[in-house]
Design a protein around this nucleic acid. Sequence first.
RNA 1: GAUCGCGUAGCUCAGUCGGCAGAGCAGCCGCCUUUUAAGCGGCAGGUCCUGGGUUCGAGUCCCAGCGCGAUCACCA
Length: 490
Amino acid sequence: MGIEPYGRRVDGIIPLAEARAKFDPASHEAYRASAEAAKENPAHPVTDDRPRVVVAGRCVQIRAMGKLVFLVLRDHSGDLQISVSKAQVDENAFKIARKLDYGDIVVAGGAMGATQKGEVCVWADRFEVHSKSLAPPPEKWHGLTDTELRYRHRYVDMYANPETIETFQLRSRIVSGVRRFMEGRGFLEVETPMMQPVAGGAAARPFVTHHNALDIDLFLRIAPELYLKRLLVGGLPRVFEINRCFRNEGVDRSHNPEFTTLEVYEAFGDMWTMLELTESMLRNLATMVAGSDNAVLPFGELQIDWSRPFERVAYGDLFRSILGFTMWDSEKVRAKAAELGRENVANRDPWLLVNEVYEECCEPHLDPARPTFVTDYPAVISPLTRPQRDNPDLCDRWELLAGGMELGTAYTELNDPDIQRARFTEQLVGADDEEQAFRTLDEDFLNALQVGMPPAGGLGVGLDRVVMLLTNRRSIRDVILFPLLKPEGD
RNA sequence: GAUCGCGUAGCUCAGUCGGCAGAGCAGCCGCCUUUUAAGCGGCAGGUCCUGGGUUCGAGUCCCAGCGCGAUCACCA
């Protein structure tokens, strides 16, 4: 047909939703009345004051009715019907419309009007295909439901399932909302190494890579913590980073090997300033998503209320209320751990057993519909946290849980280099061979603490999980554009 | 890593007791100026995930593998 199937630049395109909003019933009625009159009396002038638009989109529905073709275009803003009448476009454009395939990317221009059935549509006088789609389209009624195909061919999922593109548009607004909030509080966004010679700041297996020119192994970071604290030492009092972490561990509905975190450090703050900040930020985001101050958002079967103050409970209080004895009662803790099937309970650190009992027995009792701060964690499981002055078994740390997931953790940072070195060393003693391979002592970080780090509050939040909760997506893969899958075998 | 479930046309899915491989949509052809997942009529479309085994005969039963999902484990 002598046409360029892959298009060219087009100016003046507006989103489909914007075009739809331009529809004006009065001018459309006036046009129809004058067209009717002209039919009976050819001398009657046809007046057409309907708004004119130029739009583009991917074709998702086609109904060809002889000399009239109805099609529905879809873009990031929504769907809009285009009506192509043989009488209103040139011969070639009509032939193109007749030969249209699902998935073609189309430009149409014309008057915003409506059909006899009242469907708002563009009555095209311009019609062009700017990209042919050669791949067969997904089924139009059921859509693309195969989860594997949705993740592997996200670009198809995005146009076949509008809620997918909506989720990622919302994710973008949430992340930029986090950024605005943090900047509004006077925090400076920074970027610290993703490739680290020592993988520190969390207890997780890292990915290993290799730098050829330097001939050294590097680890993809499991946390930015130790670098952000160096910035406190260097004199930046309020910093945050939004970036990827990588953990070489299992994959499930709430874990992807690469994930996005917000980490925050505030000089002269503590776990409580971080708690206030986190609660304000999440309430802020939920209000934005809900579009009202009454921020109750659905998450599966749950209705999570983000507008009320979050629950707060001390780790030890929760422990006692559920188990009926205190966590300092190491005999009962051992007995309970043994009952839960733990091996070798006599020789293990009692606080590690406390935490295992806690995670198995207490965490499931928290109301998943209520965001909850659990405070005052055992010090043993928190080596980067400052122990409490009057009770060194505990430390100034909280975790935030909601929807049955851990959303984040914060602490009053440990800034005593001697205690920090002792903590790191204890960890290394407990490490098995595999851990020894990647968990080495970060001497430079300890050196930074010796230079002197101000007391500080620090925070880490899993942004993917925040997005899950705020957009009501049950799998982390639904909020990560390209989640990790095994390569397709052959 | 463990257990369970699933894998059939481009897509969404049926397929009975082991007996010729099916439907709808998409595609192709013809007709049609008002359709709303669907105008009307016709045609074509297969590595039944892969490899073995049992059987006269396997999409179906058995074994092994691959992929995806769910649950668990791991994840201070």
